[in-house]
Every structure is written in C-alpha cells, then in structure tokens.
Computed example of a mutant assay.
Amino acid sequence: MSFSVIFDNVSKNFGDFKAIKQASFTVNEGEFFTLLGPSGCGKTTLLRMVAGFNPIDSGKIYFGDKIINNIPAHKRNIGMVFQNYAIFPHMTVFENVAYGLKARGISSSEINKKVAEALAMVRMEKLKDRSPQQLSGGQQQRIALARAIVIRPGALLMDEPLSNLDAKLRVEMRTTIKKLQQNLGITTIYVTHDQEEALAVSDRIGIMKDGVIQQIDTPEVIYKNPANAFVANFIGTSNFIDGEISYINSQAYLDVMNVHMPINLTNKYEGKVKISLRPEHIYLSEKRDNTIKGQIQLATFLGDFTKYEILLENGQTIEANEYTKDVSSFKKQGDKVQIEIRTDKINLFDTKGEVALT
C-alpha cells in the first residue's frame, strides 16, 4: 500500500559541502513527484536518503506517520529503478523480476502469478526466458521497472531512468511509466535533469538548485509562474530583457526600451527589473507605436513554427516563435520587426532574479 513521503527539515553534508539544506516538503500518497535540477543540485542525494543509501545528517523523513531515518534500506518497502538498469546478467528476465519476491519468501505459485502480471504490465511477457544480453536498452529498462513494481512497494524511486535511451525510446518509456504509475497508484519520486520529461510525467515538480528547493508546484504553474529567474530559465526557454519600474501616482509602470506600460505588481517595487518572456509569448506586431524594435538575425523553420533570433535595439538577443497556423508567410534574416510586450504574458523579477514581482 502506498504512503506519503514527508521531508522535515532534512539536511545532508559531505564534509564541508552542504548537499541538502533543510528540505521540508511532502510527496502525497499516490503522487508522481519529480525532483528536477541541474547536475550537482542534490536531487539524487535526496532520493538516496529516501532509499536508505545515504544517512540523514539532520531532520526526519517519514513514510506516512512513521520515521524511517534508522530503518535499513531493505526494510523500507520501496522499489528502485536506476539509470544503469542494474539487471542481473546471469539471470533470465523471469528470474530478474522474481528476485525481490524470492527474497521475501513468497511461494513459487504466487511468484509465478505476480511475475506474469508485472511482465504483462510492461509488455515483456513473451521474453521471460531471455537473458539480459539478448535485450535492447529499452527492454532492459522495462525489466528493471517490472522488478521494482512486482513487490508492490509503498513508494517507487526512479533515478534518471531514461537517460541511457535514445530520444524516441525516452518518449515511449516515459509514457509507459506514467500510465503504469497512474494504474497502480504508487507514490513515485522521480529524479531527472530533463525538464521536458519532468513536465510530461509529473503531478508536481520540485525544482532544486545548490541543495535548496526553489519551487514546488504543478508543471503548468511552474511554467507560467516561476518563483525566480533560475526556475524561469531552467523550465523551458525564457528570454530576459532589462527594464525598470516607475510610478505615476500609485500606478506602477514598466519601462523597457522607450515603451511605457502600466503593470500590476504583487508587491510595491521600484527600480530596475528583469523581464522574463517565453518565445511563444513574443508577438511580432504590425503596430509602430509602443513596440520594441528589432532585426531578424536567424530564421529556423521547424514545421509547426519558425524560430527567430532577434537582435533588439539595446543590443540584447531574444528568441521568438511564430506559428505556421497564424501566418501566411514567414520573415527572413535581415527583416526589421516590431515586438509587442503584453504584460499579462510576462514575469518580472528583481535585478538578482530572486524575487517574483508579478
């Protein structure tokens, strides 16, 4: 039966290096929760603390209402899928999947039934007698997944499970994993540095940087309303333009390259700001007034849209997407363009990028 996983002020040090800094959050029962961040941010360290592979220096981790800090890894009722599959090369597919059940003393008849069910879930039942050397990378990853779920763990931990697969297989396997997790309702903590993968599979995402959780929310909220400039830049593509906030009476105005527009802020702020704009929210306008001037430096046709690199009049370069369904012709290198800023489609941050202002 699945359980929630609760982190209560959890820290981990390696000598003088603080790998995890007072992490406090909850992974809900049955939730698909992803830890996302660049290499070295602490996400795998945090996962290994849940698994029992790394000791917890301070704080507590709960499975439901039970503290598991001092419980050995093999008694935590978790399934684990690794980056390198960790398939036993001397065992058949069936024997690999059955391994955890045998270690628990399950009867032979029950093992046969449970292994058959697990292999059917990952569409590998016809290959049960093969050795790992006869399997492709994608097939080996399916076996690793079947071995993890066959014991019906309370939580499933996955550490970069798709990073060794090619692009097409990664997309196929992430769909398999998401469907399987939904069908079984297993609490899942998934580690990746691939933001597209995280957006595709997660109920919620925790963005990490330097051992600190930067933001936890649904993929949609994190994409649309990043908590800081790091999150905005790490999830998807963001353009950052310099601007400034000023006031007329009590109304805040955003000033950017001679464009002056009213804007609503979450907190009163005055001075220089970072403006974050997604490429799909940059509008190439026919208007001449209240727009930013630029010039196309590169146009790349990608089928459903064309990606432009645009040099702005202040010397900054941004990316913009123009969608095939919305236009009858595309612009080319050297064309002059007018860019309309829509305040409902931007995010504003202070100059350090640490505080969201909208």
Rank of each mutant, 00 (worst) to 15 (best):
V5K: 03
N9C: 10
D16M: 11
I20M: 00
E31C: 10
F32V: 11
F33H: 10
G40Y: 09
G42E: 14
A51V: 11
N54R: 07
N54K: 03
D57P: 09
S58C: 14
K60E: 14
K60I: 06
K66R: 06
I71R: 11
A73C: 12
A73D: 14
N84P: 07
N96L: 06
V97I: 08
S107F: 07
I111K: 09
N112P: 07
K113I: 02
K114I: 09
E117L: 12
A118L: 08
A120M: 10
M121E: 15
L127V: 02
Q133A: 12
Q140L: 10
A146H: 07
A148I: 04
I149K: 01
I151G: 09
R152M: 12
L157K: 12
N164D: 12
M173E: 03
Y190D: 05
T192N: 09
D194H: 02
K209E: 15
V212T: 13
I216K: 05
Y223A: 01
K224S: 04
A227T: 00
A232I: 02
N233A: 08
I241P: 12
G243N: 03
Y247V: 06
Y247N: 06
N249K: 14
N258W: 00
N258S: 14
P262Q: 11
N264H: 10
L265D: 09
T266A: 05
K272H: 14
S276A: 15
I282R: 00
S285Q: 05
E286C: 02
I292K: 08
L298P: 04
A299F: 00
E313L: 01
E313A: 01
I318W: 04
E322H: 01
E322V: 13
T324N: 07
K325I: 05
K332G: 10
K336P: 10
V337S: 08
I341R: 00
I341P: 00
F349Q: 10
D350F: 04
L357P: 01
